[in-house]
Design a protein around this nucleic acid. Structure first.
Lengths: 153, 153
DNA sequence: TTTTAACTTTTATAATATAACGACAATATC
DNA sequence: GATATTGTCGTTATATTATAAAAGTTAAAA
């Protein structure tokens, strides 16, 4: 991700917050930018280390609170299977269900969105009398680029 | 889960291990039974506490190594979104992809298996040049029973 | 029977995440 | 504008989840 596009994302996020009346504070913006400048997923404590370079007083709670806010706004997704966080590039599009493709080789994370997929899951759940409030779909494997580099593995 | 069906499960698991030449040791069996007797998901440290009643010398590594083995055999699934473990009732059916319905109210976990679902995910990944090696599908919400009890929530 | 590989035990510690509480800041209400 | 209310932050402490590493033990293979 380039610096310019992270600025663009930030501007978009600011818009969303303004519209919703959510407080996009300094810490939250800082963490947002750290995430936006990351390729792939980042752990909370990696973010903390980076945040500390700007704000040496930062503590775990600082990061977790910011991540909490950013997740709630839909700016960031938590990747449950690797306890990491990734910037979402489709926020504002409402509260979308997410499917993630996580490359175990290069660490890149691709976000795909398929309403069909969401519907399929919901209808299967429905058949069991189950009502879904939140879904986690994370696929691990090798991305296009890594497949091209070492296709036989 | 009743005691009899956990015994049945154990017998099945023993069969599978015998066939594969995997060593189903005492600790592994103990942890297997603890899991089999649990309704829903259990945390590793909860299991540890229970295991300690049988074997006071048990340590975190004891549990995690057993869980590792049981997962590898496909007897148990880890639920990434709640850092817990659940007995699988379909093992032996080969290395199936799993979809879990997790009730946030009563803690019950339903395992559903849809090859269509698996295929849908794979084909979407494929369209991105991505090769899936492992997938996590976890839906949170309310189960049939809990929906019946408090349908309006 | 010897060797080897797998498993276990133990101690220590790493990595991830939350609780609690007082201080401060923003906004809502009077 | 003053005051109450709510949300956010700073800080300390601690809970929770998970792994590393090394030495010893057991079971299986050669």
């Amino acid at each position: 991700m380039t610096a310019s596009s992270s600025e663009t994302l930030l501007a978009q996020a600011q818009q969303v917050c303004k519209k919703k009346g959510a407080r996009f504070t300094k810490v939250r913006e800082q963490v947002f930018l750290l995430l936006a400048n990351h390729q792939g997923a980042v752990g909370a404590y990696d973010l903390l280390a980076q945040l500390k370079e700007i704000d040496p007083a930062a503590k775990p709670a600082t990061i977790y609170r910011a991540l909490d806010f950013l997740s709630t706004q839909g700016f960031v997704h938590k990747i449950e299977s690797i306890n990491s966080f990734v910037m979402c590039h489709h926020f504002g599009d409402c509260d979308h269900p997410v499917q993630l493709l996580i490359c175990d080789q290069c660490g890149n994370v691709e976000e795909i969105q398929s309403n069909n997929f969401d519907l399929a899951l919901r209808s299967m759940a429905d058949a069991n009398g189950f009502t879904i409030s939140h879904q986690i779909v994370e696929a691990h494997g090798n991305c296009k680029t890594c497949n091209a580099i070492s296709p036989s593995e």
